[in-house]
Design a protein around this nucleic acid. Structure first.
Lengths: 111, 111
DNA sequence: TTCTATACCTTGTATAACAAAGTATCCTTT
DNA sequence: AAAGGATACTTTGTTATACAAGGTATAGAA
């Protein structure tokens, strides 16, 4: 699949950008991304949860359990100071990178 | 490395977009991409040549050897009809995808 | 003679998205 | 009461691909 490969490298960035806005849990993040992108990006569980664990292990985000009234547990994440710094960096990198690809890809045919 | 993962999925697209403009060979493609992107994207040989072989095997591009006066051989590639169709598709997909990521990433913090 | 540029190739490694399976609760539909 | 779907999280194994690092070979400049 092609989409799958496009996603590599930008998923962590998207997760951090959403968590930056306030504590969020995995399932909600996936819904948010689908809503924001009109289903262009439909995150699978096998990508989402490992990615969150990865970011947590790297110290970019920190998770905490929160029990709902009905007894269901949710794992919320918030961004760390280190994560915020890396996020800023990666956001800039994404801008540079996507502009670079777009330039190569949509370069007018030589005439 | 982060850049490395960002590149996944968009490399084939860039190669095809450049080859679309006229027959090109690997080494020149790498130089073109560096020049166009101000070195933001610096393609390594271990990525470039396997990617070209992949595209050729998939029938997206076709290669042919051309001997220079000094005896050096170059492998030029041109895009195929099938490749052109796939390129158009992937170009559109890249637009959708990059816009989607940018939207999630630069979404204004809730205020 | 050594270095850089040109020009291609290949093997092995690391990473990460995802399919597919599992656990568990709640609510609605049949 | 049973079945299905949504919610919510987890894990194992597979697959794809960028790249490091090695190789071959020629030409020209330092």
């Amino acid at each position: 699949m092609f989409e799958r490969e496009l996603l590599k490298g930008s998923l962590g960035l998207m997760l951090m950008a959403l968590i930056e806005q306030g504590p969020m849990y995995g399932y909600l993040i996936a819904k948010e991304i689908r809503a924001l992108t009109d289903d262009v990006i439909d995150l699978k569980e096998g990508s989402l949860y490992p990615a969150l664990h990865r970011l947590e292990k790297e110290g970019m985000i920190e998770g905490f359990w929160q029990r709902r009234e009905d007894g269901v547990d949710r794992r919320y994440y918030r961004i760390t100071a280190a994560g915020q710094a890396v996020l800023d960096e990666r956001r800039a990198q994404w801008s540079r990178f996507s502009a670079a690809v777009s330039k190569v890809v949509s370069d007018a045919p030589s005439q």
